[in-house]
Amino acid sequence: MAKLFAVTIIVIAIASAIPIIMHTWSAPEDISIHGPIIDDQMSETMAEAGIAFLAAQFVLAIFIWMFAKPNPGGKIKKFPGGATGLVIGAFLIVGIEVLALGVFGAKVWADVYLSPPGANAMPVQVQAGQFAFYFRYPGPDGKFAAIHPNLIDESTENFFGIDTTNDPDAKDDIVTAEFAIPVNKEIHLLMHSKDLGHSFYVRELRVHQDFVPGLDVSLHFTATKIGKYEIVCTQLCGLGHYNMKAYLEVMSQDDFDKWLKQQAAAQ
């Protein structure tokens, strides 16, 4: 029984590790400038966690194999070094591992989150509501019209509640349901929630940020690869949560300019 158990543990441990080592399932290819350091950090953590996982399961299995003896004879032996050795070992090995992960991880985080957007970053606003995203481009004047929540009306497609009659900034605002951006251009995304908590997650872009109702947050990123990617909501927001999504279209600068003109004409 004990030997079978030991073998089972080892088989499970190896079977669990195979898909990771073989990259059977892996994150989609990164399309952002800040993404590679996150991916590096990820694979480093994977290596360290994987070694810890396999080592612990193997030692557990080996000890079960060796010491499961129902016979009463013989003396109890103590692992050389005892608890002191293990505590020192844990502090040294895990402590160093943890410190390294923490310090490098902090650096990655700082690169992503603690740097201000560049001066030339293109501002785009995204508004999340049950159960759709809407995007707003400021137009030629570079200014977003103020949001008046009492003017929000789905039936007239005034998703942002902008005052088109009195507000001069509102004339050239462009509101879309899809998120088009030019490639290799830094985007400064201003995030606003209309109703509840939502989240903005683009796997390929390595971007994930919650919308906070009552508090506008922003983030910035640069996409490096043309294509169409999925934006999903990851913060439980009600019955249509599973279906709340939009698409990110990364285009060449020319395509983007054309697209924006079309959208402006359609407003």
């Binding site: 994977m46 796997r203 913060q235």
Partner: peptide
């Protein structure tokens, strides 16, 4: 042990960007 090692990932905010939720 198996559940604990995946904590290494979620403890780091930078990796949590990918794995959160």
């Amino acid at each position: 042990v198996s559940g604990g090692v995946s904590g290494f990932f979620l403890a780091q905010p930078s990796i949590d960007i990918m794995l959160h939720a």
